[in-house]
Structure formats: structure tokens, C-alpha cells
Design a protein around this nucleic acid. Structure first.
Lengths: 232, 232
DNA sequence: CGGCATCTTAACGCCGCCTTAACAAGCCCG
DNA sequence: CGGGCTTGTTAAGGCGGCGTTAAGATGCCG
């Protein structure tokens, strides 16, 4: 379920509006890239591959309609036009050139956010959506999206705590995780002294995922410090 | 290959606005179906399979938001909301329920036509999921458009709540759905703690759709976490 | 107003998971 | 060489989640 925060490209010259949108998007789990000119915007669109583009029509170097046209020559990334021009013919022109939505300034933050969600929803329905983010190491396979674990093709049954512990380890595969970190992440802050829990569940995990549980090859002990999940 | 003129479904009670839109669409190679109530609109949406839906929020029998919600249970046909309500929270609510666009009355004909073109453009990019969205797994068949469920060819009768629960599970087949997610989607945000509702209805569903209800093969329990509908 | 379908609430036994305890084995240190 | 610490392993108890049943409340239809 944990895909990275959507990347929003904002092409807008007025610093005031930039600050406004930065604040609006900041609290809502979006990553933001800013461009002050059409030229820079086109470059960022190509370079960063954003999930949605917010485009001001009144740019200093090139007209926003032209930017829309150029973007649509090679990408279908959703474009939401933000413009002070409220004339109908402006909206029609932008939409027919390939923009997906058109908001007239001034607009409300909540409406903008809702329309961004619509744009992202559209994009996510497009074909070519990769199967799932799946961790594979050796004969072990962990599908985070479906919350399923396989060993040698066989599905395993893990209890909730076992699964949370495995996920914590796998997500930082290769890195060393201290007892504190693991207890904090799996059981919560009130349990960071109960290292005993760790031993029990580490052992249960090894029973289920290790070919030879007595001689661990994936789930390694770092004596005195913590545990580490072996990366490929 | 000339495809037929796009079919537009207009759900709107005011005769005045109907006449206006009839005239607007008339000259532009669209076919138009009209419905004056929510009930009729839902029926037409299922029966005529329109390419885009224009929906007024102020219907006499049911709120337009509820219509949006019900449509989105089984179809992704673009919905453009036409409303006299211009408040931001109305827009956000409609868009988050699955509407694709929101126009506040009064609006210009040209803008509406442009936004219809955007909606059709989006739809044409979708993969060819032409016919009724029907889920089939094993001997179970769920027809979302007709709101009908079959097991081994026999039609089943499900209560409204049972049906909504099944739809929620089937639409994310393979994925694990937490208690919270299911309660949220089927009963609403005020019920996310009433996990015993789930147990009751899960059991009733199993009685109806499982060959051997005591040994579930489609509707699986993930202890401590939620439920999962088995994908093929 | 009565009857039916559906939703809601209550109650209970069972199984599985978490928790706790106890002990063996390995390692560092004096 | 021995004591104390950390780690691994096994077993048992209690609690909560889950499935199941049934009765009461609610709402809709004629």
C-alpha cells in the first residue's frame, strides 16, 4: 500500500501563488517540484516525470497554451490549468489542447486538492500498472500490497505480529535494526524494553521462513545490537 | 471506422435546463438520453450504457451525491456534475465520491462541451472494458451493472448490506481488506469500531456463496487483520 | 394496522495468538 | 575456570477474536 507520495510539478511564476500552493500541498503527503518559467517547466516535466502538473497560463516566456500543446506531444500526465483568465474561450482552448481541468483564480485549496485527487485517480486507472511492489530474496517472497508471504511458491501463514516484524525487517533489508527500533516499530513505544518478545518472534519467523531454522541465512543476529535481514 | 455519436445521459429535473442542454448538445453530433429522477437516471445508466453522464445534484427523490456513489459501485463512466451549489465542500464531496468534473450553474455551453470532450477523451484511453463489469471466480459470478449475483448459474438473493460487502471485497479481489476499510466502505465512518457487524455479515455471505460455509474457500479470514476475497 | 424482510443487539463456545515463565546454550570477562 | 550476561528454545495459561445462533428492533409494504 505504501507507494511514494505523488509528485506534483507546479509551473507558476508568481512567488505569492507559489508560496500559497506550497503551503496547501505541504500538509497532504505530496512532493512538490517548482518551475518559474515555461522552459524550466518543460524541462522538469521531462526530467522528473511528475504524477500531475499544475500549470499557470500567464507565464513570462511562453504562453501556457503552448506549454500544454508541447507537453501533449509526448506525455499524458494530467494537466490542471490554474489561470486568472476566466473567459470561456480560454477554458475551451486549454481543455481542447489536452488539459484535463481548468481552475479560475481565485480558487479554494480544498477544491484544488480534490481535483488533484481526481487527476491522480484517472492516471492510476490507466493501463501498464505494474503488478505489485514485491520483495524477493532467495526463495522468500513478500507481497506488501496483498499482505502475502511465500516461501518456494508456497504461501505461508503469519500471525499479525510475525508479519509486522517481518515487514519491518524486510523494508530495511540489509540494514541493521536495533532492538529498540524493532520493538518501537512492531509493538510501540511502551515496549522498547521487552527484548524478550523479539527473541520469541524472531525464532518463530525463522521456523517459518528459514530452510534450516537453527542456522539462519536470511534473518541474522547481530549480537548485542539487534537483527538484520540479509539483502541479495 | 466511424463510431456512433457519443451517448450522453442527462439526469436533471428542471425542464428549463433540460431544454437548454438539449439545444446545446443537439447541433454537435451527440445522442441524448434524459432522466428526470435519480431512480430513472440509475436505470438508464445501466440500461443504455452511456459514454458520459451529466448529473444535477438537486434531484427530487435522491441526493445527487448518493447517485454518484451508487453509480461508482459498478461503472467508471465519466460523471460531470452540474449544480447550483457552488460551495467548496459540495464540490469536494462530489469529486471524492467519484465524479470527474463539477460545473457550477450558470455555466457556458462551450465550456460544458469542452469538458464533455475531456471526459470522452479520458474514457477512450481506458482499456477496452466494454461490456458489463462482471467478476467471475470459480462458480461465483457478480454482475455489478445488473446488481445480480449467481452461484453455479443460480441467481442468489442478497440483502443490500450483504451485497455492498460482497462488492467491496470483490472489487479488491486478492487484496487484504482490514476491518476498518470494510466497515468504512460498507457502513460508513461512524461504524469503524463495530467489528461484530462484519462477523455477522461475513458469515451470512459465506452461507450463500460458499459451497461449504464452514470451510471457506473464497472469503478468507486473516486473523487479527481483516478479510480477503480469493483471486483466481 | 399487520406481516415480512432486514438490521441490530446480545450471548456463548472455541480456537489461536499473545504473553509469561523457565531453562539450556553460547559468549565475554574477570 | 567460573560467573553473569545475552540469546535460543520449549511449554503452558489466559485473553480476545471469531464463528454461530437467536431474539429483539426497525422499517417498508400492502
Amino acid at each position: 500500500m505504501d507507494r511514494p507520495a505523488p509528485l506534483v510539478l507546479l509551473i507558476e511564476d508568481e512567488p505569492q501563488m507559489r508560496r500559497f500552493l506550497r503551503a496547501a500541498l505541504g500538509g497532504h503527503d505530496y512532493r512538490l517540484v517548482e518551475a518559474a518559467t515555461a522552459k524550466e517547466g518543460l524541462a522538469q516535466a521531462a526530467g522528473r516525470n511528475p504524477d500531475v502538473i499544475l500549470l499557470d497560463l500567464g507565464l513570462p516566456d511562453t504562453d501556457g497554451l503552448e506549454v500544454t500543446r508541447q507537453l501533449r506531444e509526448w506525455t499524458r500526465t494530467p494537466i490542471i490549468v490554474l489561470s486568472a483568465r476566466g473567459r470561456e474561450q480560454d477554458k475551451v482552448a486549454a481543455l481542447d489542447l489536452g488539459a484535463d481541468d481548468y481552475l479560475t483564480k481565485p480558487f479554494g485549496v480544498e477544491e484544488l486538492l480534490a481535483r488533484i485527487r481526481v487527476a491522480l485517480r484517472h492516471a492510476s486507472l490507466q493501463p501498464g500498472d505494474a503488478p505489485d511492489p514485491v520483495f524477493e530474496m532467495g526463495e522468500l517472497k513478500v507481497d506488501l500490497a496483498q499482505r502475502q508471504v511465500f516461501r518456494a511458491g508456497q504461501q505461508l501463514h503469519l500471525t499479525p505480529t510475525e508479519y509486522r516484524l517481518l515487514v519491518a525487517l524486510v523494508r530495511h533489508a540489509g540494514k541493521l535494526l536495533t532492538h529498540r527500533q524493532l520493538l518501537q516499530e512492531v509493538w510501540g513505544s511502551n515496549f522498547i524494553t521487552q527484548t524478550h518478545y523479539l527473541r520469541i518472534y524472531i525464532m518463530q519467523l525463522r521456523q517459518k521462513i528459514e530452510p534450516d531454522p537453527t542456522r539462519p541465512r536470511l534473518l541474522l543476529t547481530e549480537p548485542g545490537v539487534g537483527y538484520r535481514f540479509k539483502a541479495d
